[in-house]
Structure formats: structure tokens, C-alpha cells
Simulated scan of single mutants.
Amino acid sequence: MHIKKLLLTIVLLSCSSIVFGSNQEFYVINESDIAKADELFKNEQYQESQQLYSKLAKAGDKYAQYILSVVYLNGLTGEKDLQKAYAWARVAKENGNKELSKHFDHINSLISPEQKDQIVKSSSDIYRQYSNLGIAENFLSYLKDEFPKCTGSRLQVNVNACERIQVTCNINSVWGANTIPDIVSSFGKDCLEFAAKIQPENLKKMKAGIELMEEYIQEERKKGTVIISEEK
């Protein structure tokens, strides 16, 4: 059974369905990759499973984060790495799951007093990037970047401005028939994606997704500033 922050997963999945085209990639957890990673790991194909678990972990899957910690702790794909095992265990236990917290406590007990400060400090980068808050902030930036900029501003999410725009995606009607095919193909794809995004129902979905993510981030921030320090 996968141990996840279900709210974040649902938010990400619901928001991902409203993005039609992208200038950047943002991986979202999916059941197919989960099943494949689990099968590979069960069959002791650790290198292959680690690649998938890494993608899942960086998208916020708590079980995948835990498995990465296990891989590094036991050196299943190379030398043991207590530092990375600690870092991923720290992120995995973020939601308070008892089993994942127990795993973290076990790793914590393996760290000598001389190693403690350095390992705790080094885990901060992974925590900052792949905690629930870090992933949500990154995805919010992605969603805002994907929202059509009908006002010419990257800072505004303006549905009404987009609804006033009319789009024609026939490049020949603009520049004539003697046009380079590659330009036609690129222009046509981008134009059609933009035309799809500015449909009223799609604009509303995208705006709702952005607001949902903003609300989630506000709730996470209310929990207080994350400080990486020795666990009590």
C-alpha cells in the first residue's frame, strides 16, 4: 500500500488535467508508474526501479521517498549512502505516518554525533525541494506559467482578458501559402494549444486549479517555517 499525502496528490492530478501544452515538463504521480516501480523492486531490479521511484519521490509520493531511503541505506544500487538515506527518510515522514517515522528514527540512530550536524544540514536541500510545500510551490509556478498571458503580463491570471481574444490558426491566411513547412507546423501547434486554453470552460478550470494550489500552499505555510534540525 502506498503511503502518500493524498490531498497534495489529488490537487496535482486535478490541476495537471487542465494543462494542454507545455514549455516545461512537470511530472505527476500516476498509478502505472507506481505499479511498474513496485514490480521492478519486488523482482530485485533495483537500478530500474530506482529510476521510477526517483521520479515518483520528486513528485511527492511518500512511499517512493521511503523506498529511495531504503535503497541508499542498504546500498542496493551501489555504495551505501547514509546522508541520502537520512534526507529521503526525513521527507518521507513529513506527514506523520508511524511506519515512516519509525524508519527515520532508525536511520537517525545510526548517525554518530560527529556526523549529525553535516547530515542534518545536507538534508535541507532535498527537504526544501521535495516536501509537500516545495512541490506545491513549484507546481503553482508551472500552472501560472501555463496560463495564457492575454494581458501581456506574466503576473496576471485574467480570465476576462482572454475571453475577449479571437484566434485564427490558419497561418496561410496570415502570411500566404509560400511558407516554410516547419514554421507552419510549429505555429499551428502553438496556436491550437493557445486557442484551446482560452476557451471559457478551460480558462475557468485553469484558474480554479491555480486557486486550489494557492489555498493548499497557504495552509502548508500556516504550519510554520520549516527548519531542518535534529529531531526530538
Rank of each mutant, 00 (worst) to 15 (best):
E99F: 11
N172F: 14
L13H: 15
L12H: 05
V71C: 07
E163H: 07
Y27F: 14
E44R: 14
D38N: 14
L6T: 12
L143C: 01
E201A: 12
E79K: 14
Q47S: 08
G152S: 11
V11P: 00
Q156A: 14
L76P: 12
V28F: 02
K223F: 08
S16P: 04
S185M: 12
E39K: 13
Q218T: 13
M206L: 15
R128T: 15
E137T: 09
L203P: 00
K121A: 15
L100C: 05
P148E: 07
Q118N: 10
F20K: 10
R154K: 15
V71G: 06
D125P: 00
K55A: 07
S186W: 06
W175T: 13
T9Y: 04
K222T: 09
V226F: 13
F139T: 00
C162H: 08
Y66M: 11
S109I: 05
E114Q: 13
G224Y: 09
W88R: 02
E219V: 09
E114D: 12
D125L: 11
S153D: 13
K116Q: 14
V184C: 10
K55W: 03
I135E: 01
H106P: 00
G96V: 06
A161I: 02
S141I: 06
S186M: 09
L155W: 11
V28E: 01
N158D: 15
A208G: 03
A35L: 11
K55M: 09
P148A: 08
D182N: 13
Y127C: 11
S101M: 10
Y130T: 02
V11W: 04
S122Y: 06
A195Y: 04
E163K: 15
G96M: 05
I135A: 01
I126A: 07
E44N: 13
K4M: 08
M1I: 07
K189P: 00
K58N: 04
K58W: 00
S185G: 05
E48N: 10
C191N: 02
Y127A: 06
F104I: 04
I3S: 03
Y53I: 03
Q83S: 14
Q51D: 10
V157G: 02
S32K: 15
K205S: 09
K149W: 13
F41S: 05
E99H: 12
S131R: 03
Q118R: 10
S186K: 10
S109C: 06
L212I: 09
R90V: 10
I107E: 02
N160C: 04
F104D: 02
L155N: 13
A64P: 02
Y127R: 09
I183N: 07
V167D: 04
S69D: 05
L100G: 05
T9I: 14
Y53V: 03
G224K: 07
Q51G: 02
D61A: 04
Y27V: 01
T225G: 08
D33K: 13
E163N: 13
C162L: 09
L76H: 10
Q199W: 01
E211V: 07
T179H: 00
Q24F: 11
G21Q: 14
G75K: 07
E231D: 09
A195S: 15
A87P: 03
E146H: 01
E44M: 11
A136V: 02
A87H: 07
E220I: 04
E39L: 12
I180G: 00
P113M: 01
S123C: 05
S229D: 15
L73I: 02
K204C: 05
P113R: 01
L212C: 11
S112M: 10
L52V: 05
W175R: 12
